[in-house]
C-alpha cells in the first residue's frame, strides 16, 4: 500500500541529502518526494510517498525520526486528505489537431500554457488518478516531454500537521 508522509524539517542545508540518503541506505524506495517552505520560514515540508507494508512504514518513520533536523512526521494517508500533483506535457500538435486537444484539455480542466509551430504545452493539476488519466488521453498525439511535480498533500477539515501543535498523533513527543 502507498503511504503519504507529511514530514516537517528544519530548513537547514543538507536536510534533503539526509532524508534521501537514509532512504537509499536503508533500502526504502521513494515513490515521490516534494519539498518546499511552509508558513514558517525556518521550516520546510516534505511530502514523501512510500510503497510498503505497515512494518516497513513504521521503520521508515522511526528512522526518519532519528534525524535531528526532522521535526515531525505524520502518515496522513491514515486520515482524509487532499492531494495534488501538477503536470506539464508537451505534445505534438499540428494546427489541425489543436482544437481537438484543447477540447480534451477542457474535460480535465487543463490549460494551454504554450504553443509552438508543431507542439502544444498543457498544464494540469489534480490528484494522481486524474493526472494519469490526462497523460493517457494525450499519449495518442505523441508526448514529446512530460514533467510532474510529485504529490503535495494536506489533511482535510480542521486537522493539521504543522509545527503549530494541535494534531500531534504522530509527533515526536507522542
Amino acid at each position: 500500500m502507498k503511504h503519504t508522509l507529511a514530514v516537517l524539517v528544519e530548513n537547514s542545508p543538507g536536510v534533503l541529502a539526509r532524508v534521501a540518503g537514509l532512504f537509499s541506505r536503508r533500502g526504502f524506495n521513494i515513490e515521490s518526494l516534494t519539498v518546499g517552505r511552509t508558513e514558517s520560514n525556518d521550516v520546510s515540508r516534505m511530502t514523501i510517498v512510500v510503497e510498503g507494508d505497515d512494518r516497513l512504514i513504521e521503520q521508515v518513520s522511526k528512522q526518519l525520526h532519528k534525524l535531528i533536523d526532522i521535526i515531525k512526521i505524520s502518515d496522513i494517508s491514515e486520515d482524509e486528505y487532499v492531494d495534488r500533483d501538477l503536470v506539464m506535457i508537451k505534445v505534438t500538435a499540428d494546427p489541425s489537431q489543436r482544437v481537438e486537444i484543447m477540447q480534451m484539455a477542457g474535460v480535465f480542466r487543463a490549460r494551454v500554457v504554450d504553443l509552438g509551430r508543431k507542439t502544444m504545452t498543457l498544464e494540469c493539476t489534480g490528484n494522481e488518478g486524474k493526472i494519469n488519466a490526462f497523460e493517457e488521453s494525450l499519449r495518442p498525439y505523441g508526448i514529446k516531454e512530460l514533467v510532474r511535480t510529485g504529490k503535495v498533500a494536506m489533511l482535510r477539515g480542521s486537522k493539521f500537521s504543522s509545527t503549530n501543535g494541535a494534531h500531534t498523533a504522530d509527533s515526536k513527543e507522542g
Binding site: 542545508p13 541529502a17 535531528i68
Partner: peptide
Amino acid sequence: ITGITMPITKHNYLVK
C-alpha cells in the same frame, strides 16, 4: 566530510 559521514554520525554540522 559532512557528506561522507552523514550515514555514520548521529548528526553533523558544517559551520557557515
